[in-house]
Design a protein around this nucleic acid. Sequence first.
DNA 1: ATTTATGCAAATCCTTTGCAAATCT
DNA 2: AGATTTGCAAAGGATTTGCATAAAT
Lengths: 166, 166
Amino acid sequence: MSQSFALENVEVSLSPQQRFEEFLRSRGKRNTPQRRLILDQVFARHDHFDAEDLLAHLRESGVAGKVSRASLYRTLKQFVDAGLLRQMNLGGRAIYEHDYGYPQHDHLHCQKCEKLIEFSSDEVKSIREAVAREHQFRAQGHRLIIFGVCSACARPKRQKRPLDLV
Amino acid sequence: MSQSFALENVEVSLSPQQRFEEFLRSRGKRNTPQRRLILDQVFARHDHFDAEDLLAHLRESGVAGKVSRASLYRTLKQFVDAGLLRQMNLGGRAIYEHDYGYPQHDHLHCQKCEKLIEFSSDEVKSIREAVAREHQFRAQGHRLIIFGVCSACARPKRQKRPLDLV
DNA sequence: ATTTATGCAAATCCTTTGCAAATCT
DNA sequence: AGATTTGCAAAGGATTTGCATAAAT
């Protein structure tokens, strides 16, 4: 599967696998069944996950090969270096999401259901530019998380309870 | 020492200690020498710190009393609940800074020297409002971190080396 | 042959928790 | 006395690391 997005002024048209291959090649590293397996799993769906989620998923989804915890952590780090994944810190652990071929965005974080909701705002990027300029700061990226309560959790849905008590 | 800031539409004029006293009283909790000691230390300077930094500081500064690691962690959490400190996650650990009596702001984070530089932008807050409205999200706060390289670290200052090699 | 990667278990870092002793009210 | 707090040490969760073995070049 091949995509085509304008990402950071570069036209991208390689699959994550191809992109990773190139990254590895350029550094004299090797691709392995484990790395391929993890990358497939990671790009099978677009969502947010942490290392332990993914490990559990890899294990229960009864995939052919298996991957050790150590290799998984080592590999995720490389995906970030390769620009495939974006990492953020939330509640003491690392959360990952697609970066490669995926447009820039930020998040709303519901404190009740822990859901992460994506949004994009061009203004954020322009604030970033302006602030960086003011401080002579060479900005390379940013993370904006707005936390609060999502619409679903805010909706006061009454507790489920036995009918005879209603 | 008493300050006076307009914070979230409420005129504030209590010292952190007084504010904490009230917080504790309102919850039937007690103030203790340890808590007072930590709070003094925390509000002695305006900077960013993590629990272990502070613990080391409390210990080396040969203060009269001492505080256990457990009490320190427990107390920091309460300062956050009391609205005295604001917490953020960075690089796998919790970073704290003054919240009470201190204006809202965000940060530039230098990836080289790890410094946190504060900035404030009214636009950030208005983006937050707009986005929240769009998503019917009840926003309670946000964290914006712009990461990159600060001006000091960007300045190519040459390596120090023996004179006879220059 | 030589380098790189894997898996396991141990180690580490940050933070929390159980519990008995100490301290308030 | 009754509730809250402390300190210590042990437990926990997430992530990293040392090292011997396995796989790739």
